[in-house]
Computed example of a mutant assay.
Amino acid sequence: MKILLYSLLLCTAQFLTAQTATKEQIISDLPEIEITEGINLHIISPEPIQYVDLSTQKLTGDLPTTNIARIKITDNPDINQKEKIIKPVVFSSRDTVGIITVVGQSFIAQYKAIYRNSENLNTVTNIHIQPENMQPIELDKMVFSNLELRKFAMDIIRKKSEEHPIREKENLQLSMQINNVYVMSDYIFLDMTFKNNSNLSYDIEDLKFSIEDKKIYKATNNQSIEMIPIFQLNPQKHFRKNFRNIYVFKKFTFPNSKVMMIRLIEEQLSGRTIEMKVNYSDILKADTF
């Protein structure tokens, strides 16, 4: 009976390992992407790119934005250092130019770059990294990628929680409210709505978060600690009537002698600024989801 039970447990463990193990990549199995001389290939990632590796000097590239890798065939000819002879690199159709590796926050994707003649008008200029080409990277479970944070934020947006805000402030026909506070692992999500009751649209210069003293006797004694969200769902800088957004912070604490100050500042010359104080008790009441 013990032998049977042990065999059953062993088989189960082997099955689970097979289901969760990351498949090894073989060059011949890599997805192919075509690249042409004189034309940049843009690889678009669903989350910020952490690292790009090009396996050969025949390829060169950069990161014009956090989510896009720009790759091209190197313009410089191959120089024979010993004989000081310049020999242009010549490719034939379907030659392998090199291997492109893109590492995101939670995945690694690899492609085989195949040469395509520039006379072909169907040259690909950009590709999106597809889920089937991503291999997961084992990360600390407490760390979420921007893609995961966006999913959580979208789940919050789908909740209709604007009617009973936990804190609200009005000034100059503007209102700023915290609909709710959520916590997920070591992350705090602020669900906020801004309303403009005037006929003038609002151009956001900045939205500042800081931890400050509750009682400020002298401006020089005020110790203000700026807090920068690690993620926000919508980077919008302009709204006419209503604007709802989710701001994500790594877990923080502050004593009862301090408050979290939120300031919405319009572009210069308008003077329409609104600020709100948030007590730590509001953060402690955060919901989970």
Rank of each mutant, 00 (worst) to 15 (best):
Q105T: 05
P88A: 04
Y187I: 06
D140Y: 09
H238P: 00
A21N: 04
L4H: 05
Q173M: 11
S45K: 05
Y182R: 07
V89A: 01
E205D: 15
M1H: 13
L9I: 13
N279E: 12
E34M: 10
S145R: 08
Q105C: 05
Q223E: 15
P46M: 08
N180I: 04
Q135N: 13
L172H: 05
Q81F: 06
S201M: 10
K159G: 00
Q19I: 14
L41N: 05
N222V: 13
M134D: 03
Q81S: 04
Q50C: 01
M134Y: 03
V90Q: 08
I178W: 04
N126H: 15
R272D: 12
M142D: 10
K237E: 09
I225V: 14
S210Y: 11
D203K: 09
M134K: 15
V90G: 00
M176L: 15
I265E: 15
Q105I: 07
Q57A: 05
S55Q: 08
E34Q: 12
Q173R: 04
K251A: 09
I3S: 07
I73H: 02
I230T: 06
N180T: 06
I35R: 06
T193K: 01
Y247M: 09
S93N: 14
Q110M: 15
L59T: 04
E83C: 02
L41H: 04
Y202H: 07
C11Y: 06
H164L: 08
V124C: 05
L121E: 11
K84E: 13
Y187F: 14
K241C: 01
I283W: 00
